[in-house]
Amino acid sequence: MDAVFRLLGWKESSFEDYQQAYATYGGNLLSDPRILKFIHSRFDLKPRFLIQRDQNDEIVAGVCIWDNLYIAGDQRVANKHGINRFPLNFDEIVLPISPDTRAVLPFRTKFLSDINHHPVRNSSHLLNAHREISIVRAVSAKTRSSRNRELRKFIDIGGSIHHVSEFSAENLMQMYATLFFQRRGKQIDLEYTRELLREIPDLPFGYVLSFEGEPCAMQWLMKSEDHQRVYLDYINAGMNTALSHLSIGTLVAWVNVRAAFEYGEKQAKQVRFSFGRPTADYKDRWCDRNPLYRVIA
């Protein structure tokens, strides 16, 4: 297998080389060196880092692989080793690859982002069971006006909005656990979320809605950034279903979508806000479906 890697231009590299590739070309949360370092310190994945260089010896692509075959972040490996216990979205992988290169990846995944489709020559959507991911679309002026009007009405009758930075990580997690139970009737295990935030505390993003002083709705969102994009992953939501007549699910989604695009504008970066797989009708109201690609290897 190593001979195939070399034949296709991939060379074994260091974590530092991979960090350089990420700093140059970016990637989402699953390819973020901080997340990889966190995961590798806890699971025996036999991680390897490989890079490609151009004729000027400049790095043009980087990849981390697990179990000597799969691209880091692939769902099959995440599920096998129990990595999916952590609040991470394993539905899309964005690799640090130059958009101008044309590489063949001798590694497997069914969750390659369309961002990497052009530079990865051996990727296919048609041979990937038409897998898709829901990416939040730009909001029209009409929708923006309507949602803001609904939000003002909510605030006028006793509602309020609070940025996640107003709470300690522990308080934020406890609120989420309570609201998740109110929505689904299931207890959520905070152990793994607590462990992740202890090491990488700046991951949460967004707002919590309260009504008459009590938290009533929130989306658990995780954020990462590279030099050109802000990546947001919607993990799950919690809400007080007794207040569903106030459309708090729609309102909390709107507050976070609005905040995401405002943040991206402030940072002068594109926003890629993922609602994960298109598993519910409400996602189509907020999102466009983007293709995911299978790497044929």
Rank of each mutant, 00 (worst) to 15 (best):
R48D: 03
M1K: 14
P278F: 09
K142F: 02
R6E: 15
D91K: 10
N171T: 11
Y282M: 11
D281S: 14
L251Q: 06
A259C: 01
P215N: 05
N28T: 03
F111L: 13
D284I: 05
S113C: 03
G185P: 03
I235M: 12
F86E: 05
S14R: 06
P278V: 08
A253G: 01
L45T: 13
I161S: 12
F273D: 02
R6W: 08
Q270E: 15
L179D: 07
E214G: 01
E150A: 14
V164C: 09
I71H: 06
G238I: 01
I155P: 02
A280C: 06
K142V: 00
T241F: 03
T101M: 02
I161H: 12
T24H: 07
S98D: 10
F107K: 07
N68Q: 14
D44G: 04
K46Q: 13
G158T: 11
R76W: 08
F154C: 02
I161P: 00
Y192D: 11
V4L: 15
Q219Y: 06
R149Y: 14
L127R: 14
A23P: 00
A260I: 04
A253S: 12
G82T: 11
N79E: 14
L95R: 05
R272Y: 14
D44K: 15
R152E: 14
A259N: 04
A3L: 12
N89G: 00
A259H: 12
R137C: 06
N148S: 12
G26K: 11
I97Q: 01
A297P: 15
V208F: 06
S134P: 02
P201Q: 12
L50C: 04
A169W: 01
P278M: 07
Q20G: 00
L209P: 08
V4M: 10
W286G: 02
E212D: 15
W286A: 02
L95C: 02
S224I: 04
R198D: 11
R285A: 10
Q267D: 06
F154T: 01
H117W: 01
Y176D: 03
N122L: 09
M222V: 15
L151Y: 07
K269E: 03
F38N: 03
G213Y: 10
Y207N: 12
D57P: 00
R102N: 13
K46H: 13
E191H: 10
K283H: 11
V4H: 07
V257G: 01
M239R: 15
P47E: 12
Q55G: 00
A72C: 13
S113Y: 05
D67Y: 04
G206E: 08
P87N: 10
W254Y: 12
R53A: 02
P106N: 11
Y293H: 15
L292G: 10
I115R: 11
A253T: 12
H81R: 10
S244K: 09
E212Y: 08
L105E: 05
P96C: 04
D226K: 05
E225V: 14
A237L: 08
N290L: 14
N128D: 09
E150L: 13
Y263Q: 11
L36D: 01
E212W: 06
E12M: 05
A141P: 01
R198L: 10
A259M: 02
Y231K: 05
S145T: 09
